[in-house]
Amino acid sequence: MDFSKEDIRHLGDLSKMKLSDEEIEHFQKEFTSIVGFIQTLDELDVSNVEPLYQLSGAQSRTGVDVVEQSVVAEDIRSQFPESTDDQHLIVRSVFSKSE
């Protein structure tokens, strides 16, 4: 399977990555080679095989509800380099008016 520059740009968009022209050219070549390699699976007929999602048979279970010390406020604040004082976190605006 061959990848066009448009294909790579589209995958970049889906992955929220702005790719440089150089990267696009690079990934175009690499993806053609990697997907060529994973296509060896086409040799196998798996129509009667059940998919295997998970190995340890994880089951959801209910936990015991215990009150315990969770994260300390100071630790949370330390994750925000833009904070100005002990009480407030600065959260930058992320939405802009559409042009």
């Binding site: 994973i38 699976l41 798996v46 095989v49 998919p51 295997l52």
Partner: peptide
Amino acid sequence: DSYYNKALKVRRLAA
């Protein structure tokens, strides 16, 4: 279907 779902089935075969 041709990639992810197929790979899950091959994982079964490998196991």
